[in-house]
Every structure is written in structure tokens, then in C-alpha cells.
């Protein structure tokens, strides 16, 4: 029972959405389910937050390794949550957007989340550079093609590309590095992306069918019967 009901729900919901495309009276069901989905997703955020606090509170209580940092997570979490939910420091009344300019919540986003997030991603520039140095040595034809394509794109997006090849006359402007970069993006890259997209779409369609028909059940987790 505990497995069959979820399987039935997946089947009914999935089939309803597919059939709705062919039945005009229920064609808006997709939009409604989309809203339902986003509402449940918010509860999933609550679940994630609850789980985060459960884990870190446990660490603090047990005084396990690095518990002091768990305290930072908990304090940061509750500070952001209280400021956001009660709109503390927000200009205007309750109808004002929580992300309105000047609100404490937005200030915390600008001065806490934004630097942390962008620096985390910026850090990847160093790791990508070091990984690419090791991986992209022109060992064979394929690696050379990849290297050359990446090099042209990088060069074409900087002023150096124009500086180096700007002298090429307009009638042969395809050979100017910035134009070559545009051509690579719009032609061979597009072809490759399209082949990948078609492959992925076939995979997604097959997986969707497996889920709807109950062949794929791993999302149900454990093997308790009932």
C-alpha cells in the first residue's frame, strides 16, 4: 500500500498531463499542476531548512567536530529567516516586496549571499584553469580541436582578438577572430548542441515513460512493503 499509492499517483498525474495536450477542455491542467508543483517545492524548501537545522543542531548538541561552524550556519539561517519572514526593516507596509531595495533582507542578500556566491563561482576559474592545463594538452586530434575551439572563443570575446585580426578586410571578415568565434557558436557549436539535445530529449522521454508506468521506482526509496 505504501508503495502502490505513490505509484498510482505518479501514473495518474503523468498520464493526465500527457492526455491534457490532446483534450482541449483540460488543457490548462498543466498550468495548474505547475502552480501545485511550485507550492509543494516551497514546502520542500521548508523540509530542506528543517533538515539542515536538525543536522546542525545535532552537531552542536553532541559537540562533534567543527560544531562551532554549525553554530554559524544555525545563526545565519535564523537571522535571515526572521528578517525575511517578518520583513524587518522593509520600507512600506506588508504588501511591499520582501526583496525591495533598502530592506534588511535585500541588504543581507547584497552583502552576504552575493559576495559568497559569486566568489565561490569565481574560485572555479582557478580550478578550471589548472584542470584544463592538465587535460587539454594537444595529445590527439580530438583534444586539439577542443583546444583550438576554446582558444578562438576565449580570444574572440576579448579586445585582443580584434587587435590581432582587425586588419583583415571586410570581405574576408569571417577570418577575424571575433567573427570566427561567432561563427563557431552559431554553426558547429549549434550542430553539436542540437545533436546532444536530441539525444537528451530521447533519454528524458524514455525515463518519463519508465516513471509513469512504474518501471522506475528508485525514487520511492527503501524496500518496506505494505
Amino acid at each position: 500500500m505504501r508503495r502502490n499509492i505513490p505509484l498510482a499517483v505518479t501514473f495518474v498525474v503523468g498520464m493526465l498531463l500527457i492526455v491534457s495536450v490532446f483534450l482541449p477542455p483540460i488543457e490548462t491542467i498543466g498550468e495548474d499542476f505547475g502552480v501545485f508543483f511550485s507550492i509543494i517545492a516551497v514546502f520542500a524548501f521548508f523540509l530542506g531548512g528543517g533538515n539542515l537545522i536538525k543536522v546542525h543542531f545535532g552537531k552542536i548538541m553532541k559537540k562533534s567536530n567543527d560544531w562551532e561552524f554549525s553554530l554559524v550556519t544555525v545563526v545565519g539561517f535564523f537571522a535571515m529567516l526572521i528578517i525575511g519572514l517578518f520583513k524587518i526593516g522593509a520600507p512600506g507596509d506588508i504588501s511591499t516586496s520582501v526583496t525591495a531595495e533598502g530592506s534588511y533582507f535585500q541588504e543581507m542578500f547584497v552583502y552576504l549571499i552575493n559576495p559568497l556566491q559569486s566568489t565561490m563561482y569565481a574560485l572555479l576559474a582557478f580550478f578550471v584553469a589548472s584542470a584544463s592545463y592538465r587535460a587539454f594538452r594537444a595529445k590527439n586530434r580530438e583534444a586539439t580541436i577542443l583546444l583550438v575551439a576554446a582558444f578562438i572563443i576565449l580570444l574572440g570575446r576579448t579586445p585582443l582578438g580584434m587587435m590581432l585580426t582587425g586588419w583583415i578586410p571586410e570581405s574576408f571578415s569571417i577570418f577575424q577572430v571575433p567573427n570566427l568565434a561567432v561563427w563557431i557558436m552559431n554553426s558547429p557549436n549549434l550542430a553539436g548542441q542540437r545533436a546532444i539535445m536530441i539525444g537528451i530529449s530521447l533519454g528524458v522521454v524514455a525515463m518519463s515513460l519508465r516513471l509513469i508506468l512504474g518501471i522506475e521506482r528508485t525514487y520511492l526509496g527503501g524496500d518496506d512493503k505494505g
Partner: peptide, 15 residues
């Protein structure tokens, strides 16, 4: 750790 905490709360509040 601060990033994890504030990001989780941010997603919850915006949601």
C-alpha cells in the same frame, strides 16, 4: 557554513 545557512533561509523566505 554561513553561506549554507543564509542561502537555505533565503530560498525559504522568497518561496
Amino acid at each position: 557554513h554561513l553561506f549554507v545557512g543564509v542561502s537555505a533561509a533565503y530560498a525559504m523566505v522568497v518561496g
